[in-house]
Write a protein that binds this DNA or RNA. Structure first.
Lengths: 230, 230
DNA sequence: GAATACTGCGAACATCGATCGCAGTATTGG
DNA sequence: CCAATACTGCGATCGATGTTCGCAGTATTC
């Protein structure tokens, strides 16, 4: 029962006998991320990556233990794009808010991130740097370690919620969405759901609120609600 | 280009010539939900359902257009378990909070609900009743239709976040989680992540906060932050 | 130059969602 | 009461998926 983590983070160039593996894990990650950008997480398949790399599907398993580990690798890779070098002001709420905004920008840049299940992701090196940074912002706040971790997890959850909203807002109403709206309107117009009908009628007229303002406000309230000084 | 919704909600007994389809969509939903309870959403497959029903996999497609529609059906079915008959008090915050608590209970009862992607779900009849109920709680609040819909969507998002936390908390630390914790501790112990190490050390000692209290507090803050009177 | 240790990968397996077309059957119309 | 009709159930099958096995090839080490 050694139950070795068998994670990909330790996998690379183990023996390092080979000739500097040209197609390293980083390359695999890049190709996979490109596929995800183009076609979403569902488009990230062993064979598509292999095809893009000019190899066979079986080759990837020398560098990646399983598909989930590959997704962890992708996740960790793009997490590295978050700039952690900005200095902390000492105000935990403002510091975490700033970090949350940068995180939300990352989600908007890589919408497929919203599809990776949160509870399954393992902590990669870049994500560890990220978490360390967030904990540094909370360093002098009187909370237990558990409370801090939960607060950060909750904050990240809020980020994904608003990222969802902003992405939804950003998409021009395609024919598909219009059809769906029409269907929902039809369902609402059966008389038994008057409030839905009214709200959706309004919804097409009202200008959307600026999601960023709302995000800032809600993030501040969440953080102060969790016990941060505010 | 009729682009008919082709949704399952209108699919059943169309011509109704057959002999009262014994294995109706409701039965399929029940079996699929049982499979999801036992093995998660990933265990819900055409063939497993067919096997449980004693038929072939192709038969299901007479009642269900696609797997996504099946999942919508499952979602809508369990949504029907939420009791909407409780009277509204007239206080929108308290009414929505009460609804949110019942919704969170549903998620705790059916954890696979957390795995169904939110942005893809279509509005079934039960979910429409649910939405109508939530809008009724907001009836006399001065918000636009769009704002109300977004508020409800955000509220449901918060429900899923806390459901995630509570489920995570509920699981006894299995060997798997222990191994993962050990791995993360090892990663934290390389010296470059002292705060992670400290927080996780605390985390194993500190008793967890009561998630329900925290949920109530955060929900109230979210709702008042969105402009509800509080 | 031989032993070694790793890499790349073709072939294959199990499983998945989904489609096609036909046999069977219940309902309808005459 | 029989034929036409319209639907149901489903075997066979397609394309694609994640993953494993084992072998040929190659670079490194002794």
């Amino acid at each position: 029962m050694p139950e070795e983590p068998a994670s990909i983070w330790m996998r690379p160039e183990r023996g390092a006998r080979g000739p500097a593996p040209e197609r390293s894990r980083a390359q695999i990650a890049v190709v996979a991320i490109d596929l995800a950008i183009a076609g979403g997480l569902a488009a990230v398949s062993t064979r598509q990556i292999a095809k893009a790399l000019g190899t066979g599907p079986a080759s990837l398993y020398r560098y990646v233990a399983t598909r989930d580990d590959l997704i962890d690798l992708m996740h960790d890779t793009v997490t590295g794009e978050i700039d952690l070098s900005v200095p902390l002001t000492g105000d935990p709420v403002e510091d975490l808010l700033s970090l949350a905004v940068r995180t939300k920008d990352l989600y908007l840049r890589y919408p497929w991130l919203l599809d990776v299940p949160v509870e399954r992701t393992r902590l990669g090196p870049r994500a560890a740097d990220y978490l360390e940074h967030a904990l540094r912002a909370l360093q002098h706040v009187p909370m237990t370690g558990r409370q801090k971790l939960e607060a950060i997890s909750l904050l990240n959850g809020l980020v994904t919620l608003f990222a969802h909203i902003e992405i939804q807002e950003r998409r021009t109403p395609t024919a598909r969405q219009a059809a769906q709206a029409a269907y929902q309107a039809q369902l609402a117009a059966d008389g038994r759901h008057p409030l839905i009908a009214a709200a959706m009628a309004d919804s097409t007229l009202d200008p959307p609120d600026d999601p960023r303002q709302s995000f800032e406000r809600m993030t501040r309230r969440l953080l102060t609600g969790l016990g941060l000084p505010g």
